[in-house]
């Protein structure tokens, strides 16, 4: 399953607006997408679920691993990677 590792540099982490943007972007793709908190090693969760993403507890500086499977998997990873690396457009 294709996956990428990203560092969340936004001061809020994956919380508040960044979490919402992340989930909305994931939900715009048809494939299955999961995200995992690499920094503290919890199991992966559904990247399209805001509540699951919040429970990952990703703070500033944490590493996440995003995996996608199915239709447009590569495009989804690229889009999520751009979003995180652009610091959620700020």
């Amino acid at each position: 399953m294709p996956s990428i590792t990203l560092v969340v540099n936004h001061p809020a982490g994956l919380h508040a607006r960044p979490a919402a943007e992340f989930v909305k972007k994931a939900a715009s793709f048809p494939c299955q997408i999961t995200v995992r908190n690499v920094t503290d090693g919890k199991p992966p969760v559904n990247a399209k679920s805001i509540l699951s993403v919040l429970t990952l507890g990703v703070s500033q500086g944490y590493e996440i691993e995003v995996s996608a499977e199915g239709e447009q998997a590569q495009e989804a990873l690229q889009a999520l990677s751009d979003l995180v690396q652009s610091n959620f457009g700020e």
Binding site: S49, I50, L51
Partner: peptide, 13 residues
Amino acid sequence: FEAHQLFLDDAEL
């Protein structure tokens, strides 16, 4: 409150 809206759309929930 925009986040509250997202909770209502949460697939896992």
